[in-house]
Amino acid sequence: MTTHIPVSERPAVDTAAMQVKRNRHYGRWVGVAFLAVLAAMLIHTLFSNSRFQWGTVADYFGTASIVEGLLRTLWLTAAAMAIGVVLGTVLAIMRLSPNPVLATSAGVFVWFFRGTPLLVQLIFWYNLSALYPKLSLGIPFGPEFVSGSANEFITVYVAALLGLGLNEGAYMSEIVRAGINSVPPGQREAAEALGMGSRRILFRIVLPQAMRVIIPPTGNQLIGMLKTTSLVSVIAVPDLLYSAQLIYSSNFQTIPLLIVASIWYLIVTTILSIGQYFVERRFSKSENKPTLTFTDLKRIVTNGQREVSV
C-alpha cells in the first residue's frame, strides 16, 4: 500500500546541483559524415573526370534545336495534363454516379489505361492505321459524313497527345474521386435539403471543398508528366530528349547531350516543384477551417437565386 506524503513534508530538492546532460546523437553524426564523404566524392568526380566534357555541355545547352525540343516538351506537358484533368473529372463523376452503366464504363476505362504500359499505348496509337486504315465520322451503322486516311489524321503529335492524355485521365480520375469522397456527406445532404440540384451541388459545394485534396497530387502528376513526355521519342516526336538524340547520333557526343537534357529537365522540374509548394501551402490553409454550415449553404442558394433573377 502506497503512503501519501504531503508536499510540505517532502524533502527539498537542490535543483541548482542537478546537471542537465544533452543526449549524444552519435548515429546522426556518423550519417552526416558518411553523406559528406559521398558528396565530396561526387563533386570531385564531376570536375576531375574529363569525360563529362562540360565544355561540350555548355556549347549545346542553349542551341536552337535543344530549346525547340524543350518548348515542345512543355507544350506536350500542358496539353496532356489539360486532357487528363478534364477527362479525369468526367470519369470520376461517372464512377460515382448511381447509374451502373456509367460507373462500369468509367471503371473499365480506368482499368484498361492503368493496366497497360504507357509506352505500349503510345506505340499502339502511332500504328493505329495498321488496324483502321480509314477513319470516318457519321451515323453508326449508317452513312459516313467525313472520312480520311488514318495516317493523315493520327500524326505523331496526335498519337502523343492521345497516349499521354488518355493515360493521365485514368490516373486523374482516381485523384478527383478521392477528393470528392473526402467531402463529408452531410454537405450534400444539407444542400439537397435546401433544394439545390445535383449539378449545382457538385460545382458549388463538393468540388470547391475537394480541391484541397485534389491539388497536391495533381502537382505531382504535372511534374511526372514533364518527365513522362520523354517516352514520345520512340514515335519520333522531336521533344527535348529526341532533339538531344538527333544531335549525338551525328556527333557521337552521347554523354554531354544527355547531360544537357537532364539539366533542362531538372531546371523545369525545380520551377514546378516551387510552384507546387506555394499552391499546396495556399490550399493547406483551408484544412483548419470549418466546413460549410447550413447558414452558408442557404446564403449560397440565395445568392444564386439573385444571380438568376438579375
Rank of each mutant, 00 (worst) to 15 (best):
T2M: 05
I5E: 04
P6D: 13
P6V: 07
V7L: 14
R10W: 09
A12Y: 14
T15W: 15
V20K: 13
R22M: 05
H25F: 13
H25M: 02
Y26P: 05
G27V: 01
G27Y: 00
R28W: 07
R28C: 02
G31D: 01
A36S: 08
A40G: 13
L42M: 07
N49Q: 01
N49I: 00
S50M: 02
W54R: 08
G55D: 11
V57R: 03
A58W: 02
Y60T: 07
F61H: 06
I66Q: 07
V67P: 01
E68V: 09
R72G: 11
L74R: 05
L76E: 07
G84P: 04
G84Y: 04
V85A: 11
G88S: 06
T89V: 15
I93C: 15
I93N: 09
L96S: 14
T104S: 12
G107I: 00
G107K: 11
V108A: 13
F109M: 00
V110W: 08
V110N: 12
T116V: 12
T116L: 08
P117N: 04
W125I: 05
W125C: 04
L135T: 05
S136L: 02
F141W: 12
F141E: 13
G142Q: 01
P143A: 14
P143N: 06
E144G: 01
G148F: 02
S149D: 11
N151C: 00
N151Y: 06
F153R: 03
V156C: 00
V158N: 06
A170L: 08
N181D: 14
S182R: 09
P184K: 08
G186E: 10
E189L: 10
L194H: 12
M196C: 10
M196E: 13
M196P: 12
G197H: 05
V206H: 05
V206M: 14
P208S: 05
Q209V: 02
Q221W: 03
I223K: 10
G224C: 06
L226M: 10
V234W: 00
P238W: 14
P238Y: 13
D239L: 05
S243I: 07
S243D: 03
A244C: 03
Q245F: 02
L246M: 15
I247Q: 11
I247A: 08
F252K: 04
T254F: 11
I255V: 15
I259D: 12
A261M: 08
I263N: 09
W264V: 02
W264T: 01
I267R: 10
V268D: 00
I271Y: 04
L272F: 13
V279T: 15
E280V: 10
S284F: 04
N288L: 12
F294Y: 15
T295W: 01
L297M: 09
T302M: 12
S309F: 09
